[in-house]
Amino acid sequence: MELLKLENIYKKYNQGELAVTALKDINLYIQKGEFVAIMGTSGSGKSTMMNILGCLDRPSEGHYFIEGEDVANFSENRLAEVRNKKIGFVFQSFNLLPKLSSVENVELPMIYAGESRKKRHKKAVEALTKVGLEKRINHKPNEISGGQRQRVAIARALVNSPSILMADEPTGNLDSKSTYEIMDIFQKLNDEGVTVVMVTHEPDVAQFTKRIVVFKDGCIISDNPVTNRTFRKVGEEF
């Protein structure tokens, strides 16, 4: 069974008289363990796709199955649960809460999952250790670098052991060295079995993935496995 299965997905917006169709009849299957890049120019529908994949939005038509469960018509509350338990988000602008320390930021999803204090802290420290930030757990976001912030965000996305990691332009605000580090982390996580879906408009970044899906005008125009995949090379600058 596919991890994610999208069938005949449409997304329409009504802006006054003008009806805009952002997604047209999308069919997409993502298996467990895949590392997919979603590409496209701005306005191509890739962000809309990301919002639907991440359960932040619901399609106007069609079915979206996560692990066999059709979430297309879920209530807001149930979608919140899906986001909490099955999806981990990594954003372009990190989206950490500025007043909370790294570890508190990572604990946040577990608070909404109702985990106990002790367990939360333990798991948050583990997740931060995994992304190499065990020495920064009590730093606030403005006390660490952009790359480190994104690593905190990845730790936060991973901490509830989601079925899928959604990354929306995760390297968009980072310099090339940090970009390299972040992609390295994604590759390692993927090697460990984490399914990753990443929106990007940079072809170089997309080369780190295993499969590239290209959107244009709300349709998928190409869907190909990556040849000449870029791999982590220790010490090499990106």
């Binding site: 919140a80 986001r83 989206n95």
Partner: peptide
Amino acid sequence: TREIGIRKAIGAKNRD
């Protein structure tokens, strides 16, 4: 607003 968005994205329900 942004904080609310973040909290919702990571699983906060409207009730929370």
